[in-house]
């Protein structure tokens, strides 16, 4: 119920407090409350109920005429060709983006852990002959390539799936009033989730070194135990990177939407002649001013994956090459903290 009240408050926050506006707010609030209570009685969860109520709220621009607040709600478009993005489009984008974020994160997860079965299977100590060892190695390799292919497929697909919304970044768009408020609310609500995901990810990264440390303390670093330590480490790092990617992508999606509006506001302020330069392509929320970094960072994890596989296959030291992952994680955190600029950090 709190979320609904907040939503209504933010929707009406910038409007003048005329009797008509106050009445509209009370009435709409009453309807939302009734609907919410009924949905809860039907057994819907709080989250579901809030989602349904907000999605059936509609659009303030619709009541603007009746309330005499058209000038507040309907900002004059800066140019004729400006496209207005509605709440439905924004909601659809956010939901789709969440699915694709999971897919992309799982894709990278599979890339990272692809060698885990191979490491474990090839490390199994075999005493007599080489038969079973070869068999294990082949099974491990097959699994490795299956996961690589699956992971890459998911990663690529998650990048392509957003194309139906690409007009938002390519064309001159602005969000309508309810869409703006909705995105702002989602963005500030996602913040705590984002922080939790990052913290858990960092903890996993730290834990990933634990097995190796324990084994080396017990002086059993050779052979099978080294491989087990590597496998556990890879799995934990994979899970950590999964969380980083998921958190980054979800927030990135909301940031992109904010950026659409930011650009529209800028264009309106600066006038039509200088709006051209703001029409850049899509960028993530973390923006690198350095030209090379801005090109390299989007392909950071795929590059690390390639590096890891190449080094591992050349040296065949699967027990030690996993060190690339924690190092890469630290380097990534360092680069994005030092050189990255969080554009929409309010």
């Amino acid at each position: 119920m709190e979320a609904i009240k907040t939503y209504l408050e933010t929707m009406f926050a910038h409007l003048p407090r005329t009797p008509e506006v106050t009445r509209a707010k009370t009435e709409l609030g009453q309807m939302m409350e009734d609907k919410y209570n009924e949905l809860i009685e039907e057994g819907k969860s709080e989250n579901e109920a809030v989602g349904i109520v907000i999605s059936e709220f509609g659009n303030l621009e619709e009541v603007a005429e009746e309330l005499g607040i058209r000038s507040f709600v309907d900002q004059e478009p800066a140019e004729e060709a400006q496209r207005v993005v509605s709440f439905e489009e924004v909601d659809g984008y956010i939901k789709g983006r969440t699915r694709l974020s999971y897919m992309g994160a799982f894709g990278i997860f599979f890339l990272i852990i692809s060698s885990v079965p191979f490491i474990i299977l090839s490390g199994i100590p075999v005493t007599a002959g080489g038969g079973p060892a070869k068999f294990f190695a082949v099974v491990g390799l097959i699994l490795l390539f299956l996961m690589l292919a699956g992971g890459l497929g998911m990663l690529i697909f998650s990048g392509l799936g957003e194309r139906e919304y690409s007009y938002m970044w390519k064309e001159n768009c602005r969000l309508d009033y309810s869409a703006q408020e909705y995105v702002k609310m989602q963005y500030s609500e996602y913040r705590s989730t984002h922080t939790i995901l990052i913290i858990v990810g960092i903890v996993l990264c730290i834990l990933s070194a634990l097995p190796a440390a324990i084994f080396s303390f017990l002086q059993v670093t050779n052979g099978f135990f080294g491989n087990i330590a590597g496998a556990v480490c890879l799995f934990l790092v994979g899970a950590a990177v999964f969380l980083f990617v998921l958190a980054g992508r979800q927030r990135g999606g909301l940031g992109r939407l904010l950026k659409v509006q930011y650009r529209a506001d800028q264009a309106q302020q600066e006038g039509a002649e200088s709006s051209q330069k703001n029409q850049g392509g899509p960028e993530d929320v973390i923006i690198y001013e350095n030209e090379y970094l801005s090109k390299f960072m989007p392909v950071y994890w795929p590059t690390i994956t390639c590096l890891y596989l190449v080094v591992s296959f050349l040296t065949f030291r699967w027990g030690t090459t996993w060190i690339i992952w924690p190092v890469a994680g630290i380097v990534h955190a360092f680069i994005s903290k030092t050189f990255g600029k969080h554009v929409f950090e309010a």
Binding site: E20, A24, E27, L28, Q30, M31, M32, D34, K35, E38, E56, F57, G58, N59, L60, E62, V63, E65, E66, L67
Partner: peptide, 28 residues
């Protein structure tokens, strides 16, 4: 308000769900 929006939903077999702002602007 809510009763009307609910009746619209029920009578239309959920094929038409009226937005609250639409309903309110029709009232005014």
């Amino acid at each position: 308000g809510y009763e009307i929006s609910k009746k619209i939903k029920d009578l239309s077999d959920e094929k038409y769900i009226i937005k609250q702002t639409t309903l309110y602007s029709a009232f005014t």
